[in-house]
Design a protein around this nucleic acid. Structure first.
Length: 453
RNA sequence: GUGGUUGUAGUUCAGUUGGUUAGAACGCUGGAUUGUGGUUCCAGAGGUCGUGGGUUCAAAUCCCAUCAUCCACCCCA
């Protein structure tokens, strides 16, 4: 009984065409990363559950894919526990590994574990899939790739500056028009302090983050529901309404946050960062967005988010500074900052705006038609020569009908076909056909290489 | 986790108030054309109608359950 094959919900196969395009994105990103001195690492798809749990909040824990222990794990579980039917409790007994949820936490684990071999500041990039047991929907998958760059072990705002430059370079090279939004968690903390809701900072940031999505009124409702006092919400209004260019906003913040030490620290960081950036003639727009908060709560300083202009798809890149991510693994006081590029969304933008290059180094450039054994022998040395010259070359492996072989070349979008049968062999030449124009001409082996190089 | 949507050929989808042998387009295979692909013409193959039950003389069609899917919310890239 042949069963209908399928893949798990929220996962995808990638066809050759898609892979060529995905690699185009990854290559562009990697090229920029290397340009700034970042080095690649990889970590396992699975981590110990103890490494992952508790790092992403309660919601994040639910979205972790857990891996069942090997062997006869259930026999070791007590009858009481089984009868309790408590999934959470049972999970800790039958699963001790999980698929990674992002690349940052495994990176922090890596840094702590290898701290004696790492030279700080450590600049690494990492491009690997991550998994979330989320319910998939448009542009959201259960398995997707993240492209992370982080530098850990340096407090300098030069790192933030370089990350913005990297963002600028990547999206310029991919031809995507973007705007980089920057904020600072210390400013948000300062705001919370000033309005007297110090310990509600997470609720406040999450709510503020939705400002441009759901509007001011609904944000206020949400704040109120979360238990923020009316008085504090009232105090918050002028801050949310801050207008003007970057300098104006900063000037106003300096007044509002005057009494908050963290807040002023944040303002100073932002000032310095923009001072660096304003000198760089970036091609991307960079703006200070005080409503930018970002969900992840390990951020402590600068936060970034990149949005594509003329394309409403959410953020395509985001990140920030985290002062103590390695602390939970026993290495305190090591600050890091990094951003992550969302490959899937970048892919969607490039394909919808038709921005992928038409030619690729990953596809076949020329195919030899197979006319039979004698002709194969005649062609093989030339195939070898072409390959030695870096030209992607293949020969149809069977003496099939011409139509079939041509069809194969056409479907595979191979731009050139070589025909070498009896008449060509007698003249020691080859017929080269251009599949786009349909033109063909008789050439020598040497000319073949020259034309196709 | 909550709400909704849709499951029919490889793919995208038609299929009337329940009624003979379930259709189309694209794709696939072969031929027109044994050394020329894309265009055209002709022929052919391909379906447990998601699965299980129920109603009925009769179910792709109605009912129930179940699984899958996509979309939205929460959250997030």
């Amino acid at each position: 009984m042949a069963q209908k094959p399928s893949i798990p919900k929220g996962t995808r196969d990638f066809s050759p065409t898609e892979m060529v395009r995905r690699n185009y994105i990854f290559d562009a990103i990697k090229r920029v990363f290397r340009l700034y001195g970042f080095q690649p690492i990889e970590t396992p798809a699975m981590e110990n559950l103890s490494t992952l749990t508790g790092k992403y909040g309660e919601e994040g824990d639910k979205l972790l894919f857990k891996i069942l222990n090997s062997g006869d794990f259930i026999s070791k579980v007590s009858d009481e526990l089984l009868n309790e039917r408590n999934s959470n409790k049972l999970t800790t007994k039958i699963s001790e590994k999980g698929l990674r949820y992002d690349l940052t936490v495994p990176f922090a684990r890596y840094v702590v574990q290898n701290q004696n071999d790492i030279t700080f500041p450590f600049k690494r990039y990492q491009i690997q899939p991550v998994w979330r047991a989320d319910r998939p929907q448009k542009g959201r998958y259960r398995e997707f790739y993240q492209c992370d760059v982080d530098v850990i072990g340096s407090n300098s705002l030069l790192n933030e500056t370089e990350l913005v430059q990297i963002i600028d370079d990547v999206f310029t090279s991919l031809n995507i028009k973007t705007v980089v939004k920057i904020n600072n968690r210390k400013i948000l903390a300062g705001i919370a302090e000033v309005i007297g809701e110090n310990d509600r900072i997470i609720d406040i940031t999450v709510a503020i983050d939705k400002l441009d999505k759901i509007g001011l009124a609904k944000v206020n409702v949400e704040l109120s529901e979360k238990g923020v006092s009316d008085e504090a919400i009232l105090k918050l209004q002028p801050i949310l309404a801050l207008e003007g260019n970057c300098d104006d906003k900063i000037a106003q913040l300096e007044v509002v946050l005057n009494t908050s030490e963290v807040g002023m620290k944040g303002v100073n960081e932002i000032k310095l960062l923009f001072a660096y950036l304003n000198n760089l003639s970036l091609k991307t727009d960079v703006e200070l967005d005080l409503t930018l908060a970002r969900g992840l709560n390990y951020y402590t300083g600068a936060i970034f988010e990149v949005k594509a202009k003329d394309f409403d798809i959410g953020s395509i890149c985001g990140g920030g500074r985290y002062d103590d991510l390695t602390g939970i693994f026993g290495l305190p006081n090591v600050s890091g900052v990094g951003v992550s590029f969302g490959a899937e969304r970048i892919y969607d933008i490039l394909s919808q705006q038709d921005l992928f290059p038409s030619d690729s180094l990953e596809t076949t450039k020329v195919m030899f038609v197979n006319f039979g054994e004698k002709e194969e022998v005649y062609c093989l040395p030339v195939l070898t020569d072409l390959r030695k010259n870096g030209i992607n070359t293949e020969i149809y492996p069977e003496n099939a009908k011409m139509k079939k072989q041509m069809n194969y070349a056409n479907k595979k979008q191979i731009p050139f076909v070589v025909l070498a049968g009896e008449s060509e062999m007698s003249k020691n030449r080859f017929t080269l056909k251009n599949m786009t124009s349909g033109d063909q001409k008789s050439v020598t082996a040497k000319e073949l290489i020259n034309i196709l190089s």
